[in-house]
């Protein structure tokens, strides 16, 4: 008897508590910047594609839902010829982002990806690539790496001396 009354009283008190139900979709929930949602490919500060097609995201992926093929432009800059994520398999674990050495692949605070057709959950590079650097504004892998690409010669990367003149090595 006492317990039933206490329960009624508790229910009554709840009428005066703050409401937790969010009126989604009219009202959008707060998602932290590091929230692991829809995956994107970002660009470096110069506007070039950040992805260098190193295959590390693909190999880190526990459900093997990333497939890509590397290619190079005429200057030696490597990029993915195609980049495909099968979101019908993706578990949004974020391992791909963790594995990415160039900050190219990032998970975003967006979960609104529902589809009626499963096939539509297969995203190609044009669906993934955004125009900005995403969460990591300053970084440009090519300024750190030692390979030569268009606009950056040998010895022009960070912490590099000018290329050795081989004539100085001759006796």
């Amino acid at each position: 008897m006492l317990s039933a009354l206490r329960t009624l009283w508790n229910v009554f008190l709840h009428m005066f508590r703050k409401r937790v139900t969010v009126q989604y979709p009219e009202q959008k929930p707060y998602l932290a910047p590091r929230w692991r949602g829809r995956i994107i490919l970002s660009r470096d500060p110069d506007g070039g594609e950040r992805c260098v097609a190193c295959y590390l995201c693909a190999v880190a992926c526990p459900v093997d839902c990333i497939a890509l093929q590397a290619t190079e432009d005429q200057t030696g800059r490597r990029y993915p010829e195609f980049f495909r994520i099968n979101f019908s398999r993706c578990i949004f674990c974020g391992y791909c982002e963790e594995a990415c050495p160039t900050y190219a692949i990032q998970l975003t605070p967006d979960f609104e990806m529902a589809e009626y057709e499963r096939q539509n959950l297969v995203y190609e590079k044009e669906d993934l690539l955004i125009d900005g650097p995403g969460k990591y504004p300053g970084y440009n892998f090519w300024r750190v790496a030692g390979v030569k690409i268009g606009g950056k010669d040998k010895g022009e990367a960070q912490n590099e001396t000018a290329p050795v003149d081989l004539h100085t090595l001759l006796p």
Partner: peptide, 15 residues
Amino acid sequence: ARYSGRTAKLAQISV
């Protein structure tokens, strides 16, 4: 053992 992309490499044809 670490072969990747099994669930994506043919997904453009059929999921």
